[in-house]
Amino acid sequence: MPTNPLSPGVWGVVATPFTASTMDVDEQSLANLVRHHRSIGVTGLTVLGVFGEAVRLSTAEKRAVLQVVVDAVDLPVVVGASSTSLAPVIEEIELAVEVTGDRLAGAMVQVNTPDPRLLASQLDTAHRATGAGLVVQDYPLVTGVSIGADALAEAVGEVGSVVGIKAEAPPTPPAIAKLAARTRAPVFGGLGGVGLLDELAAGSAGAMTGFSFPEGLVACVDAWRAGGYSAALEAYLRYLPLVNFEAQARIGLAVRKEALRRRGLLAAAAVRAPAPAMPPSLMEQLDRHLAAVDHVEK
């Protein structure tokens, strides 16, 4: 199994679609969504992350999601492990290895302790048990665990199997600057792309996040590579109002799924409880944002 550092660029974070009537996994919409990502030139896909509602899926559903993705496209995948405890994390990684095989670019695991030595030990144990390269996700909003960038760099530096870092502990730019300087693992920003320009300036390798127009993320990262800040700003500016709109606390997932539905990429915008649905009062404003982006896309 490959344990090479993740390639730079955009690793599109994939939503898990559900049917409106039964809330079952909508495999056809999922296949449509990942094919769209492939068509716009993403580097790879991130599946079963927070945006993929992995914590609300059964093991059988996780297996089905992974199978649909690897059958639909030939892209490398990062697969999230939703637990923060070592034993179930290993089980989740084993499932990813079983289904995706050599398509697995990395298993994404959460920082679950502020102690760098303990974190390094747990990462090493997970790798030795599964053989998978690891993407370390620092996302205290979800886990409730905060670790400083220096401590995270120390932990990652002790584990040769870390193939990437996903930095989502605000403020992300200074954290990314430290991590990029002190580790050999590529560092990716998340949080819906709100800080993408500043994260690229700080040394990130790209984006690993969900957005209803992932082509905007690709355009920004490609422009940064070709022409630096000015080119990236020009490419990304048109998308920023929608990026900001989708970043609303608590309802961001529902907003993004509704946007994907209106783009024709999902059949329904359903989210599983306890995630709240999108407020009807915001539908008109979403239409305005989508119309503005659609206009510049055409």
Rank of each mutant, 00 (worst) to 15 (best):
A268R: 09
P186S: 03
E258R: 15
A167W: 11
R263L: 03
G192P: 10
P171G: 01
G252L: 13
P170W: 06
A269P: 09
E246L: 02
G193S: 13
A268T: 11
A254V: 10
G216C: 11
A177N: 02
L217H: 15
L233R: 13
L282A: 13
E246K: 03
K257L: 11
R250F: 14
L240I: 14
F213R: 14
V255C: 04
A249N: 09
T209R: 01
P186R: 04
R261I: 01
A180T: 15
P171I: 02
G216H: 11
V187Y: 06
A181M: 04
F188I: 11
I176L: 02
L240R: 15
D222W: 03
V218Q: 09
L217W: 05
R250G: 00
F245M: 12
P186M: 04
P274C: 08
E246P: 01
K257T: 05
F245C: 12
G228N: 02
P214V: 13
T183R: 05
A180C: 08
F245K: 11
R182L: 15
P173D: 05
M278L: 14
L237C: 04
V162T: 02
G216R: 11
G190Q: 10
M208L: 15
V194W: 13
V271W: 03
L242P: 05
E215P: 09
E246S: 01
I165T: 02
E246T: 00
R225S: 06
A177M: 02
V255G: 00
V243N: 01
A202C: 11
L200Q: 07
L265G: 00
L242N: 06
L265M: 03
L179W: 07
E258Q: 15
S281A: 14
F211N: 13
A270S: 15
P276Y: 04
L233W: 11
L196E: 02
R182Q: 15
G206D: 08
L286S: 07
L265Q: 00
D287C: 11
A175T: 10
E168S: 13
L237I: 01
D198M: 10
P214N: 09
L240W: 10
F188L: 08
A226Y: 01
V187W: 07
G192N: 14
R225C: 01
R261C: 01
A207F: 06
E215A: 13
A201L: 14
A185N: 09
P173H: 07
F211D: 08
A219E: 08
T172R: 04
P241D: 12
A268C: 11
Q248P: 00
A235L: 10
A207S: 14
G193L: 12
W224T: 13
Q285G: 06
Y236K: 11
V271Y: 03
S281H: 07
P171A: 03
W224K: 11
A249C: 03
R238E: 12
M208W: 05
E199K: 08
G164D: 03
E234M: 08
A219W: 07
L217V: 08
G189C: 14
E168G: 02
H289P: 12
R263S: 02
R225N: 05
A231Y: 08
L260N: 05
F211R: 10
E215V: 12
L260Y: 13
G189W: 03
R184T: 06
L197E: 09
S212E: 05
R182T: 13
G203P: 06
A185P: 09
